[in-house]
Design a protein around this nucleic acid. Structure first.
Lengths: 207, 207
DNA sequence: TCATCAATCCCTTTTTCAGGGGATTTTTTC
DNA sequence: GAAAAAATCCCCTGAAAAAGGGATTGATGA
């Protein structure tokens, strides 16, 4: 078969170099280019359409999520593999929503990268093993209730250390209201104190 | 002059490959070896003493801090450059205490790595530019009081969501004692509630 | 040896939070 | 247009945390 054309986007030179080194060890992969940001990536795509784009999630200016959104509209053929460090798991769902077909951790081995490329090229979803760890975690992900927009606001203010009445002032509502939101969060997510709420905020990328 | 012998330790293959690629572009550097963990590193050091060791801070089993401590005792001649991602800044002081002469971010460019090696080889301290950002931050770092070992224990338990009396049980002390530690933390670090304490715990890598 | 500091323990008052119960009004959604 | 969901507001109780005070022991170090 033809070689699979892969484009890599990451703002860290070390990751870019590492990716290049590892991809060049895979014989069915052709490195279509290396980009340090979304703009460069768009140019390279225009010049030479890749089959797969491997992109970091968090980059300055235009992040991976935005880039994926753009590509889905303009070049829906390109498959996207998102890359992130361990501590950015909360962004997975966002990325998948934006049409990413794969998810790699930056701690991935050459074998995992290879597997991801093959899987995604075969129009299947690839999830890094470390990501789909325990069934428990998956279940938890599945049953995580949605945060309403107001709850997000309140939760992030709680995480910043404001008291109910301070939050009430900021949002121009009664302290009772804020307390209601707080209590809803406690019951909805089955935690029982502020510490739990802050963990929650972290999980949802509100800190 | 002779080439500088550099050994790299990191558990992420991608970083290792990236480092190798970038270091091989520096003509005065000889790559003494690449290790995926502290054990491998110790073996490679025994076989062929490097001038400089570049090590990740957070690795499974034996972390960079422990490795640095070991090397300082057994091979005090080896200079150490610590490497970390952005979000592990709190560990800098620990690393420097353990004798690290340099600090690099994983987002470093080839030029920065080169500079770090030259600086450290000349027996000077190298700090990544991004790390010495604002004076404000540095000042804050400077005036951050130390955590005693007991305070660390208490703080991490607070961050896990335990109440004072639960913590008291775990540590076999009176709830009053736990409360004292809590109050000391609040005043020492100038925060005023649990949310602030948890941020603190995060800053110190206790979560 | 004296001072300092970590770690321990005790008490009180005020504020905030957790958990329980409701109710009303918008805003979505079917 | 009716039903469901989100956002708002209110009250009460008991538990926990915040903020203030102080005291004792033991180790460390100047």
């Amino acid at each position: 078969m033809d070689k699979i054309k892969v484009l890599v986007v990451d703002d860290h030179p070390m990751v870019l170099e590492g990716m290049q080194a590892m991809l060049s060890q895979i014989d069915f992969v052709f490195i279509a280019g290396l980009a340090r940001n979304a703009y460069q990536a768009m140019e390279l795509i225009k010049a030479d359409m890749p089959d797969i784009l491997i992109t970091d999630i968090s980059m300055p200016e235009i992040g991976g999520v935005e880039l994926a959104a753009k590509l889905r509209k303009e070049y829906p053929v390109i498959k996207i593999i998102a890359m992130s460090t361990f501590n950015e798991r909360s962004l997975i769902s966002q990325m998948v929503q934006q049409g990413a077909s794969g998810y790699l951790l930056k701690s991935a081995s050459r074998e995992q990268i290879e597997e991801a490329i093959i899987t995604v090229n075969g129009n299947k979803l690839y999830m890094s093993l470390e990501l789909e760890l325990s069934k428990k975690e998956q279940d938890e992900m599945g049953k995580v209730p949605m945060l309403t927009s107001r709850e997000k606001e309140v939760l992030s203010l709680i995480a910043e250390g404001f008291t109910n009445s301070q939050i009430a002032e900021k949002l121009f509502v009664s302290p009772y209201t804020v307390d209601s939101h707080r209590k809803n969060l406690l019951t909805k997510f089955d935690v029982n104190n502020t510490a739990g709420l802050i963990k929650l905020a972290a999980k949802h990328g509100l800190v």
